[in-house]
Design a protein around this nucleic acid. Sequence first.
DNA 1: TAGATTGTTAATCGATTAACAATC
DNA 2: TAGATTGTTAATCGATTAACAATC
Lengths: 213, 213
Amino acid sequence: MKENKENAVISKATIDRLPLYYRTLKLSQEEGIEIISSEELGRKIGVTPEQIRKDLSAFGEFGKKGVGYYVRELMRNIGEILGLNRTWNIAIVGVGHLGWALANYANFSPQGFQLRAIFDIDPEKIGRYINEVEIFHIDTMNEIISARDIQIGIITVPADHAQNIADRLVEAGIKGIWNFAPIKIDVPPNVHVISEDLSVGLSSISYYISRQH
Amino acid sequence: MKENKENAVISKATIDRLPLYYRTLKLSQEEGIEIISSEELGRKIGVTPEQIRKDLSAFGEFGKKGVGYYVRELMRNIGEILGLNRTWNIAIVGVGHLGWALANYANFSPQGFQLRAIFDIDPEKIGRYINEVEIFHIDTMNEIISARDIQIGIITVPADHAQNIADRLVEAGIKGIWNFAPIKIDVPPNVHVISEDLSVGLSSISYYISRQH
DNA sequence: TAGATTGTTAATCGATTAACAATC
DNA sequence: TAGATTGTTAATCGATTAACAATC
Protein backbone atom coordinates (compact mmCIF):
# COMPACT_ATOMS: atom_id res chain seq x y z
CA MET A 1 0.00 0.00 0.00
CA LYS A 2 1.35 3.39 -1.08
CA GLU A 3 1.88 5.66 1.90
CA ASN A 4 1.78 9.40 1.61
CA LYS A 5 4.95 11.30 2.30
CA GLU A 6 5.08 11.92 6.01
CA ASN A 7 1.68 10.76 7.08
CA ALA A 8 0.28 14.20 6.37
CA VAL A 9 -3.48 14.30 6.00
CA ILE A 10 -4.45 14.53 2.35
CA SER A 11 -7.32 16.86 1.54
CA LYS A 12 -10.55 15.38 0.30
CA ALA A 13 -10.38 17.73 -2.67
CA THR A 14 -7.08 16.18 -3.69
CA ILE A 15 -8.43 12.64 -3.43
CA ASP A 16 -11.41 13.56 -5.56
CA ARG A 17 -9.12 14.77 -8.32
CA LEU A 18 -6.87 11.71 -8.40
CA PRO A 19 -9.41 9.57 -10.30
CA LEU A 20 -9.68 12.36 -12.88
CA TYR A 21 -5.92 12.37 -13.32
CA TYR A 22 -5.92 8.62 -13.62
CA ARG A 23 -8.69 8.53 -16.18
CA THR A 24 -7.15 11.28 -18.28
CA LEU A 25 -3.72 9.66 -18.19
CA LYS A 26 -5.30 6.44 -19.35
CA LEU A 27 -6.91 8.21 -22.31
CA SER A 28 -3.58 9.87 -23.15
CA GLN A 29 -1.80 6.56 -22.92
CA GLU A 30 -4.29 5.01 -25.30
CA GLU A 31 -3.58 7.84 -27.72
CA GLY A 32 0.06 6.86 -27.57
CA ILE A 33 1.24 9.84 -25.52
CA GLU A 34 4.27 8.86 -23.42
CA ILE A 35 5.14 12.08 -21.64
CA ILE A 36 2.78 14.77 -20.41
CA SER A 37 3.34 18.07 -18.60
CA SER A 38 1.16 19.31 -15.75
CA GLU A 39 0.22 22.13 -18.12
CA GLU A 40 -1.18 19.76 -20.75
CA LEU A 41 -2.79 17.40 -18.26
CA GLY A 42 -4.44 20.35 -16.55
CA ARG A 43 -5.77 21.65 -19.84
CA LYS A 44 -7.44 18.33 -20.56
CA ILE A 45 -9.04 18.07 -17.14
CA GLY A 46 -9.86 21.69 -16.48
CA VAL A 47 -7.56 22.13 -13.51
CA THR A 48 -4.53 24.40 -13.12
CA PRO A 49 -1.07 22.85 -13.53
CA GLU A 50 -0.11 24.12 -10.06
CA GLN A 51 -3.03 22.22 -8.61
CA ILE A 52 -1.88 18.99 -10.18
CA ARG A 53 1.71 19.40 -9.04
CA LYS A 54 0.55 20.27 -5.54
CA ASP A 55 -1.78 17.29 -5.38
CA LEU A 56 0.87 14.86 -6.57
CA SER A 57 3.54 16.28 -4.29
CA ALA A 58 1.55 15.05 -1.32
CA PHE A 59 2.43 11.49 -2.33
CA GLY A 60 5.91 11.78 -3.77
CA GLU A 61 7.93 13.06 -6.69
CA PHE A 62 6.63 11.45 -9.83
CA GLY A 63 7.84 13.85 -12.51
CA LYS A 64 11.10 14.83 -14.12
CA LYS A 65 12.02 18.49 -13.96
CA GLY A 66 12.26 20.12 -17.34
CA VAL A 67 10.54 17.12 -18.90
CA GLY A 68 7.17 16.32 -17.42
CA TYR A 69 5.57 13.06 -16.30
CA TYR A 70 5.93 9.66 -17.90
CA VAL A 71 2.30 8.80 -18.55
CA ARG A 72 2.57 5.09 -17.88
CA GLU A 73 4.58 5.60 -14.71
CA LEU A 74 2.35 8.30 -13.29
CA MET A 75 -0.69 6.17 -14.03
CA ARG A 76 0.85 3.26 -12.16
CA ASN A 77 1.67 5.51 -9.21
CA ILE A 78 -1.78 7.08 -8.99
CA GLY A 79 -3.36 3.67 -9.47
CA GLU A 80 -1.38 2.42 -6.52
CA ILE A 81 -2.37 5.42 -4.40
CA LEU A 82 -6.03 4.84 -5.24
CA GLY A 83 -5.79 1.13 -4.52
CA LEU A 84 -6.60 0.19 -8.10
CA ASN A 85 -3.76 -2.32 -8.29
CA ARG A 86 -6.02 -5.07 -7.05
CA THR A 87 -9.54 -6.39 -7.50
CA TRP A 88 -12.46 -5.13 -5.46
CA ASN A 89 -15.58 -7.23 -5.28
CA ILE A 90 -18.80 -5.27 -5.34
CA ALA A 91 -22.51 -5.88 -4.87
CA ILE A 92 -25.53 -3.89 -5.97
CA VAL A 93 -28.56 -3.72 -3.72
CA GLY A 94 -31.82 -2.80 -5.43
CA VAL A 95 -32.69 -3.67 -9.01
CA GLY A 96 -34.72 -0.62 -10.01
CA HIS A 97 -33.95 1.27 -13.19
CA LEU A 98 -30.73 2.69 -11.80
CA GLY A 99 -29.53 -0.54 -10.18
CA TRP A 100 -30.16 -2.30 -13.44
CA ALA A 101 -28.25 0.34 -15.39
CA LEU A 102 -25.28 0.13 -13.03
CA ALA A 103 -25.29 -3.68 -13.18
CA ASN A 104 -24.92 -3.32 -16.93
CA TYR A 105 -22.26 -0.65 -16.68
CA ALA A 106 -19.23 -2.15 -18.34
CA ASN A 107 -16.62 0.37 -17.24
CA PHE A 108 -16.10 -0.97 -13.73
CA SER A 109 -14.10 -4.12 -14.42
CA PRO A 110 -11.23 -2.50 -16.36
CA GLN A 111 -10.53 -0.57 -13.17
CA GLY A 112 -10.58 -3.67 -11.03
CA PHE A 113 -14.15 -3.53 -9.76
CA GLN A 114 -15.94 -6.85 -10.17
CA LEU A 115 -19.68 -7.15 -9.67
CA ARG A 116 -20.14 -10.36 -7.69
CA ALA A 117 -23.73 -10.22 -6.47
CA ILE A 118 -26.99 -8.33 -6.87
CA PHE A 119 -29.70 -8.19 -4.20
CA ASP A 120 -33.41 -7.44 -4.28
CA ILE A 121 -36.60 -8.48 -2.49
CA ASP A 122 -38.83 -9.01 -5.53
CA PRO A 123 -39.42 -12.81 -5.96
CA GLU A 124 -39.83 -12.16 -9.69
CA LYS A 125 -36.24 -10.98 -9.93
CA ILE A 126 -34.50 -13.37 -7.58
CA GLY A 127 -32.63 -16.14 -9.36
CA ARG A 128 -32.31 -14.16 -12.56
CA TYR A 129 -29.02 -12.94 -13.90
CA ILE A 130 -27.78 -9.57 -15.12
CA ASN A 131 -24.59 -9.85 -17.11
CA GLU A 132 -23.94 -13.29 -15.67
CA VAL A 133 -24.31 -12.05 -12.10
CA GLU A 134 -27.09 -13.62 -10.04
CA ILE A 135 -29.80 -11.72 -8.21
CA PHE A 136 -30.17 -12.95 -4.63
CA HIS A 137 -32.73 -12.28 -1.93
CA ILE A 138 -31.68 -9.56 0.46
CA ASP A 139 -32.00 -11.96 3.39
CA THR A 140 -29.07 -13.98 2.06
CA MET A 141 -26.80 -10.94 2.12
CA ASN A 142 -24.69 -11.98 5.08
CA GLU A 143 -23.69 -15.33 3.65
CA ILE A 144 -23.21 -14.20 0.05
CA ILE A 145 -21.13 -11.17 0.97
CA SER A 146 -18.72 -13.09 3.12
CA ALA A 147 -18.63 -16.12 0.82
CA ARG A 148 -17.78 -13.94 -2.18
CA ASP A 149 -15.48 -11.63 -0.26
CA ILE A 150 -17.39 -8.50 -1.26
CA GLN A 151 -15.92 -5.24 0.08
CA ILE A 152 -18.07 -2.57 -1.54
CA GLY A 153 -21.85 -2.21 -1.68
CA ILE A 154 -23.85 -0.01 -4.04
CA ILE A 155 -27.20 1.14 -2.70
CA THR A 156 -29.89 1.78 -5.31
CA VAL A 157 -32.99 1.19 -3.23
CA PRO A 158 -35.62 3.85 -2.43
CA ALA A 159 -34.64 6.45 0.17
CA ASP A 160 -36.85 5.00 2.89
CA HIS A 161 -35.03 1.65 2.77
CA ALA A 162 -31.50 2.97 2.33
CA GLN A 163 -30.53 3.20 5.99
CA ASN A 164 -31.77 -0.30 6.68
CA ILE A 165 -29.81 -1.68 3.72
CA ALA A 166 -26.74 0.23 4.84
CA ASP A 167 -27.05 -1.33 8.32
CA ARG A 168 -27.29 -4.79 6.79
CA LEU A 169 -24.31 -4.19 4.50
CA VAL A 170 -22.23 -3.02 7.44
CA GLU A 171 -23.32 -5.99 9.46
CA ALA A 172 -22.29 -8.24 6.59
CA GLY A 173 -18.83 -6.75 6.78
CA ILE A 174 -18.78 -4.34 3.88
CA LYS A 175 -16.06 -1.65 4.02
CA GLY A 176 -17.34 0.95 1.56
CA ILE A 177 -20.74 2.10 0.32
CA TRP A 178 -21.65 3.96 -2.84
CA ASN A 179 -25.03 5.42 -2.00
CA PHE A 180 -27.47 6.55 -4.71
CA ALA A 181 -30.46 6.96 -2.40
CA PRO A 182 -31.23 10.63 -1.85
CA ILE A 183 -30.80 10.54 1.89
CA LYS A 184 -28.00 10.72 4.42
CA ILE A 185 -27.02 7.33 5.74
CA ASP A 186 -25.20 6.76 9.01
CA VAL A 187 -22.48 4.15 9.28
CA PRO A 188 -19.69 3.36 11.74
CA PRO A 189 -16.48 5.37 11.27
CA ASN A 190 -14.60 2.44 9.75
CA VAL A 191 -17.01 2.26 6.80
CA HIS A 192 -16.61 4.80 4.02
CA VAL A 193 -19.64 6.22 2.24
CA ILE A 194 -19.72 8.19 -1.00
CA SER A 195 -23.08 9.68 -1.83
CA GLU A 196 -24.06 10.16 -5.42
CA ASP A 197 -27.09 12.29 -5.06
CA LEU A 198 -28.83 12.47 -8.42
CA SER A 199 -31.65 14.54 -7.02
CA VAL A 200 -29.52 17.68 -6.68
CA GLY A 201 -27.99 18.02 -10.15
CA LEU A 202 -31.01 19.45 -11.92
CA SER A 203 -31.86 21.82 -9.05
CA SER A 204 -28.38 23.21 -9.14
CA ILE A 205 -28.61 23.78 -12.91
CA SER A 206 -31.99 25.39 -12.35
CA TYR A 207 -30.42 27.85 -9.90
CA TYR A 208 -27.74 28.97 -12.29
CA ILE A 209 -29.87 29.31 -15.40
CA SER A 210 -32.62 31.09 -13.45
CA ARG A 211 -30.38 34.02 -12.72
CA GLN A 212 -28.82 34.48 -16.08
CA HIS A 213 -29.04 38.20 -16.78
CA MET B 1 -36.68 35.70 -9.58
CA LYS B 2 -35.35 35.79 -6.03
CA GLU B 3 -32.38 38.11 -5.75
CA ASN B 4 -29.72 37.60 -3.14
CA LYS B 5 -29.27 40.28 -0.54
CA GLU B 6 -26.91 42.82 -1.96
CA ASN B 7 -25.78 41.11 -5.12
CA ALA B 8 -23.02 39.38 -3.20
CA VAL B 9 -21.58 36.35 -4.94
CA ILE B 10 -22.94 33.17 -3.39
CA SER B 11 -20.44 30.38 -2.93
CA LYS B 12 -20.83 27.24 -4.99
CA ALA B 13 -20.73 25.21 -1.78
CA THR B 14 -23.81 27.07 -0.54
CA ILE B 15 -25.71 26.47 -3.78
CA ASP B 16 -24.90 22.77 -3.64
CA ARG B 17 -26.42 22.53 -0.18
CA LEU B 18 -29.67 24.32 -1.01
CA PRO B 19 -31.18 21.32 -2.81
CA LEU B 20 -30.38 19.20 0.26
CA TYR B 21 -32.17 21.68 2.49
CA TYR B 22 -35.10 21.71 0.11
CA ARG B 23 -35.35 17.95 -0.09
CA THR B 24 -35.10 17.50 3.67
CA LEU B 25 -37.67 20.19 4.35
CA LYS B 26 -40.01 18.43 1.94
CA LEU B 27 -39.60 15.16 3.82
CA SER B 28 -40.20 16.93 7.13
CA GLN B 29 -43.27 18.61 5.74
CA GLU B 30 -44.64 15.27 4.59
CA GLU B 31 -44.12 13.99 8.13
CA GLY B 32 -46.31 16.83 9.34
CA ILE B 33 -43.52 18.89 10.89
CA GLU B 34 -44.40 22.59 10.75
CA ILE B 35 -41.45 24.23 12.47
CA ILE B 36 -37.82 23.17 12.39
CA SER B 37 -34.66 24.60 13.96
CA SER B 38 -31.33 24.82 12.17
CA GLU B 39 -30.11 22.35 14.79
CA GLU B 40 -32.65 19.72 13.82
CA LEU B 41 -32.40 20.34 10.08
CA GLY B 42 -28.64 20.09 10.31
CA ARG B 43 -28.84 16.82 12.18
CA LYS B 44 -30.98 15.32 9.43
CA ILE B 45 -28.68 16.46 6.64
CA GLY B 46 -25.32 16.06 8.31
CA VAL B 47 -24.40 19.74 8.29
CA THR B 48 -23.79 22.09 11.21
CA PRO B 49 -26.61 24.45 12.22
CA GLU B 50 -24.25 27.41 11.79
CA GLN B 51 -23.63 26.36 8.21
CA ILE B 52 -27.34 26.35 7.46
CA ARG B 53 -27.94 29.75 9.05
CA LYS B 54 -24.96 31.19 7.21
CA ASP B 55 -26.10 29.76 3.88
CA LEU B 56 -29.62 31.06 4.26
CA SER B 57 -28.50 34.48 5.47
CA ALA B 58 -27.01 35.08 2.03
CA PHE B 59 -30.53 35.28 0.64
CA GLY B 60 -32.55 36.85 3.43
CA GLU B 61 -34.01 36.30 6.87
CA PHE B 62 -36.30 33.32 6.72
CA GLY B 63 -36.45 32.27 10.36
CA LYS B 64 -37.95 33.51 13.59
CA LYS B 65 -35.54 34.08 16.45
CA GLY B 66 -36.21 31.86 19.44
CA VAL B 67 -38.57 29.75 17.31
CA GLY B 68 -36.95 28.31 14.20
CA TYR B 69 -38.08 28.08 10.58
CA TYR B 70 -41.58 27.48 9.32
CA VAL B 71 -41.03 24.43 7.15
CA ARG B 72 -43.52 25.32 4.45
CA GLU B 73 -42.33 28.90 4.22
CA LEU B 74 -38.64 28.03 4.10
CA MET B 75 -39.33 25.44 1.44
CA ARG B 76 -41.13 28.01 -0.66
CA ASN B 77 -38.26 30.46 -0.25
CA ILE B 78 -35.54 27.97 -1.11
CA GLY B 79 -37.62 26.69 -4.00
CA GLU B 80 -37.84 30.22 -5.33
CA ILE B 81 -34.09 30.73 -4.94
CA LEU B 82 -33.41 27.51 -6.84
CA GLY B 83 -35.87 28.38 -9.57
CA LEU B 84 -38.12 25.44 -8.79
CA ASN B 85 -41.26 27.55 -8.86
CA ARG B 86 -41.66 26.89 -12.56
CA THR B 87 -41.41 24.09 -15.08
CA TRP B 88 -38.15 23.23 -16.84
CA ASN B 89 -38.30 21.19 -19.99
CA ILE B 90 -35.53 18.66 -20.34
CA ALA B 91 -34.17 16.28 -22.96
CA ILE B 92 -32.01 13.19 -22.65
CA VAL B 93 -29.41 12.45 -25.31
CA GLY B 94 -28.28 8.84 -25.52
CA VAL B 95 -30.46 5.84 -24.73
CA GLY B 96 -27.87 3.50 -23.22
CA HIS B 97 -28.49 1.82 -19.91
CA LEU B 98 -28.06 5.02 -17.96
CA GLY B 99 -30.09 7.20 -20.34
CA TRP B 100 -32.83 4.63 -20.18
CA ALA B 101 -32.73 4.58 -16.38
CA LEU B 102 -32.89 8.37 -16.18
CA ALA B 103 -35.77 8.49 -18.66
CA ASN B 104 -37.64 6.22 -16.28
CA TYR B 105 -36.67 8.19 -13.21
CA ALA B 106 -39.93 9.41 -11.75
CA ASN B 107 -38.59 11.91 -9.25
CA PHE B 108 -37.95 14.73 -11.67
CA SER B 109 -41.47 15.92 -12.40
CA PRO B 110 -42.50 16.64 -8.79
CA GLN B 111 -39.69 19.19 -8.75
CA GLY B 112 -40.82 20.79 -11.98
CA PHE B 113 -38.56 18.98 -14.43
CA GLN B 114 -40.45 17.61 -17.40
CA LEU B 115 -38.85 15.21 -19.84
CA ARG B 116 -39.96 16.41 -23.28
CA ALA B 117 -37.70 14.57 -25.70
CA ILE B 118 -35.15 11.79 -25.96
CA PHE B 119 -32.49 11.58 -28.67
CA ASP B 120 -30.42 8.76 -30.08
CA ILE B 121 -28.93 7.67 -33.41
CA ASP B 122 -29.96 4.03 -33.38
CA PRO B 123 -32.74 3.54 -36.01
CA GLU B 124 -34.06 0.67 -33.88
CA LYS B 125 -34.84 3.08 -31.06
CA ILE B 126 -36.09 6.09 -32.95
CA GLY B 127 -39.86 6.44 -32.94
CA ARG B 128 -40.23 4.41 -29.76
CA TYR B 129 -41.42 5.84 -26.48
CA ILE B 130 -40.10 5.71 -22.95
CA ASN B 131 -42.71 6.75 -20.43
CA GLU B 132 -44.75 8.43 -23.15
CA VAL B 133 -41.78 10.47 -24.35
CA GLU B 134 -40.70 9.92 -27.94
CA ILE B 135 -37.17 9.04 -29.03
CA PHE B 136 -36.03 11.25 -31.91
CA HIS B 137 -33.04 11.14 -34.20
CA ILE B 138 -30.21 13.37 -33.04
CA ASP B 139 -30.30 15.23 -36.35
CA THR B 140 -33.71 16.65 -35.46
CA MET B 141 -32.40 18.15 -32.23
CA ASN B 142 -32.49 21.75 -33.36
CA GLU B 143 -36.15 21.73 -34.35
CA ILE B 144 -37.41 19.61 -31.48
CA ILE B 145 -35.57 21.56 -28.81
CA SER B 146 -36.85 24.91 -29.94
CA ALA B 147 -40.34 23.61 -30.74
CA ARG B 148 -40.68 22.07 -27.29
CA ASP B 149 -38.94 24.90 -25.49
CA ILE B 150 -36.35 22.65 -23.88
CA GLN B 151 -33.87 24.42 -21.60
CA ILE B 152 -31.84 21.58 -20.10
CA GLY B 153 -30.05 18.68 -21.79
CA ILE B 154 -28.84 15.49 -20.15
CA ILE B 155 -25.88 13.84 -21.85
CA THR B 156 -25.65 10.06 -21.48
CA VAL B 157 -23.67 9.21 -24.60
CA PRO B 158 -20.19 7.65 -24.60
CA ALA B 159 -17.32 9.96 -23.69
CA ASP B 160 -16.02 10.26 -27.23
CA HIS B 161 -19.31 11.72 -28.46
CA ALA B 162 -20.05 13.94 -25.48
CA GLN B 163 -18.35 17.11 -26.69
CA ASN B 164 -20.04 16.88 -30.07
CA ILE B 165 -23.44 16.41 -28.44
CA ALA B 166 -22.74 19.31 -26.09
CA ASP B 167 -21.93 21.52 -29.09
CA ARG B 168 -25.19 20.54 -30.77
CA LEU B 169 -27.20 21.14 -27.61
CA VAL B 170 -25.66 24.58 -27.23
CA GLU B 171 -26.33 25.33 -30.87
CA ALA B 172 -29.95 24.29 -30.36
CA GLY B 173 -30.22 26.89 -27.61
CA ILE B 174 -29.98 24.81 -24.46
CA LYS B 175 -29.05 26.74 -21.29
CA GLY B 176 -27.89 23.98 -18.96
CA ILE B 177 -26.30 20.58 -19.33
CA TRP B 178 -26.20 17.65 -16.93
CA ASN B 179 -23.25 15.64 -18.16
CA PHE B 180 -22.83 11.96 -17.30
CA ALA B 181 -20.06 11.29 -19.80
CA PRO B 182 -16.72 10.84 -18.01
CA ILE B 183 -15.01 13.68 -19.78
CA LYS B 184 -14.70 17.45 -19.49
CA ILE B 185 -16.93 19.27 -21.92
CA ASP B 186 -16.40 22.86 -23.03
CA VAL B 187 -19.32 25.19 -23.49
CA PRO B 188 -19.78 28.97 -23.82
CA PRO B 189 -19.88 30.86 -20.52
CA ASN B 190 -23.64 31.42 -20.72
CA VAL B 191 -24.31 27.68 -20.59
CA HIS B 192 -24.09 25.93 -17.25
CA VAL B 193 -22.71 22.41 -16.96
CA ILE B 194 -22.94 20.05 -14.00
CA SER B 195 -20.86 16.92 -14.35
CA GLU B 196 -22.00 13.74 -12.69
CA ASP B 197 -18.96 11.62 -13.06
CA LEU B 198 -19.87 8.07 -12.12
CA SER B 199 -16.41 6.80 -12.93
CA VAL B 200 -14.81 8.40 -9.88
CA GLY B 201 -17.06 7.17 -7.05
CA LEU B 202 -15.66 3.68 -6.75
CA SER B 203 -12.04 4.83 -7.10
CA SER B 204 -12.54 7.26 -4.27
CA ILE B 205 -14.00 4.51 -2.06
CA SER B 206 -11.09 2.29 -3.05
CA TYR B 207 -8.65 4.95 -1.83
CA TYR B 208 -10.22 5.24 1.58
CA ILE B 209 -10.70 1.56 2.30
CA SER B 210 -7.21 0.75 1.03
CA ARG B 211 -5.61 2.70 3.80
CA GLN B 212 -7.70 1.60 6.68
CA HIS B 213 -5.27 0.77 9.42
C1' DT C 1 -39.71 37.31 32.15
C1' DA C 2 -36.58 33.34 30.98
C1' DG C 3 -35.28 30.26 27.48
C1' DA C 4 -34.49 29.39 22.84
C1' DT C 5 -32.85 30.26 18.48
C1' DT C 6 -31.86 33.26 14.75
C1' DG C 7 -28.71 36.35 11.91
C1' DT C 8 -24.19 38.20 11.60
C1' DT C 9 -19.53 39.53 12.69
C1' DA C 10 -14.96 37.94 13.82
C1' DA C 11 -11.66 34.16 14.09
C1' DT C 12 -10.03 30.06 12.27
C1' DC C 13 -9.16 26.76 9.18
C1' DG C 14 -8.24 24.77 4.68
C1' DA C 15 -7.55 24.97 -0.14
C1' DT C 16 -5.86 27.35 -4.24
C1' DT C 17 -2.70 30.30 -6.59
C1' DA C 18 1.64 32.61 -7.30
C1' DA C 19 6.39 32.60 -7.35
C1' DC C 20 10.69 30.62 -7.80
C1' DA C 21 14.72 27.71 -6.79
C1' DA C 22 16.15 23.23 -8.29
C1' DT C 23 17.30 20.45 -12.02
C1' DC C 24 16.57 17.67 -16.12
C1' DT D 1 24.38 25.79 -22.20
C1' DA D 2 19.51 27.54 -22.59
C1' DG D 3 14.86 26.33 -22.13
C1' DA D 4 11.45 23.84 -19.89
C1' DT D 5 9.10 22.07 -16.17
C1' DT D 6 8.95 20.11 -11.69
C1' DG D 7 8.41 20.36 -6.50
C1' DT D 8 7.72 23.41 -2.71
C1' DT D 9 7.29 27.52 0.07
C1' DA D 10 4.78 31.72 0.83
C1' DA D 11 0.75 34.58 -0.13
C1' DT D 12 -3.92 34.79 -1.08
C1' DC D 13 -8.34 33.55 -1.25
C1' DG D 14 -12.58 31.30 0.24
C1' DA D 15 -15.26 28.55 3.27
C1' DT D 16 -16.37 26.93 7.89
C1' DT D 17 -16.75 27.52 12.76
C1' DA D 18 -17.23 30.11 16.96
C1' DA D 19 -19.29 33.57 19.49
C1' DC D 20 -22.79 36.56 20.69
C1' DA D 21 -26.12 40.39 20.34
C1' DA D 22 -30.82 40.70 18.88
C1' DT D 23 -35.34 39.22 19.58
C1' DC D 24 -39.23 36.06 19.46
